[in-house]
Amino acid sequence: MGRYFRRKLLIYGLTFVIAVSINFAVPRLMPGDPVARMLTRNSVANVESSEAMRGYFNELFGLDVPLWQQYFNYWGALFRGDLGVSVFAFPSPVATVVADALPYTLALLLPSILLSWFVGNALGAMAARNKLLDNGALPIGYVLTAVPYMWLAILLAWVGGIILGWFPVAGGYSFALTPAFTWTFIVDLVHHWFLPFLSLFVVALGGWAIGMRNLVIYELESDYSNYLQALGAPNRLVRRYAFRNAVLPQITGLALQLGVVVGGALVTEVVFAYPGLGSLLLNAISSQDFFLLQGILLFIVIGVLVFNFLADVVYVLVDPRTRLGLEGGQS
């Protein structure tokens, strides 16, 4: 098994290098010039001072050296934890800008993904053996999955925020407050957090439930379930086995979902004006902020790789069949 993990790690490492290189290249291949943009923003009319500023910015962002040198500088800075300076939020360093947005995204996505996974799997497993639930609850799941997410989010914001007026419709916290570790602020935070969380939870729920239902039904019809029942095994045991085996593909699905967590839920964050990585990413693109864009993409790459690796590890632990394949066992 050690050999398997070493090989996996190597592949993940290689993927990381390639991803980081692409990450370096993509913003530079985009049309537009961030320095020119900075200059316009500062509305420098004088040609001489404009030239001086251009030189200053080029040096600051490290754009004054040839591309290949930029590439190596980029790697060097990366290992020092230096992601450069943001253009969009000049002069904050990218690391700070990303670190400020990250908690919002994580607090929004981790609970919604995990909770919808747990609840969806439980619901799906129940629906698999309960006609009433299958006919009643699952169609709702189909509708929720099929509905365009944007529409649902806007609907939720409209109903919860405007009609009922229970929740604020925008922002991560009230503008009247300053972030602090106080009860008022935390309550306000949760208050703002609820609607975007709910929208993500509800949309993901149906998909998990439907998938789980089908998987459990498949397992309950399989030979080993039939054999157990022929030997008079109580339903409890048969269902436990079926559930355990059905959940395996769902684990992979969860890992993939978690992998993109750091990318943020762009649409959610836009609809609810939530200050997470998603809206930051959008801002970075629209203001041609190479460095911020690189920084965010880097986080996404790391997130995807780490969670995929975790999925590999978990899968090997829970499914003996994968383990055997790795050890060269015969079927």
Binding site: D223, Y227, G232
Partner: peptide, 23 residues
């Protein structure tokens, strides 16, 4: 029937190769 299965009536199924829980 459950009480009678295995103790009184038992079966060796057609699909012995896949009759055991793989995990």
């Amino acid at each position: 029937m459950n009480a009678r299965r295995w103790k009184e009536v038992s079966i060796i199924p057609q699909y012995s190769m896949s009759a055991l829980n793989p995990t």
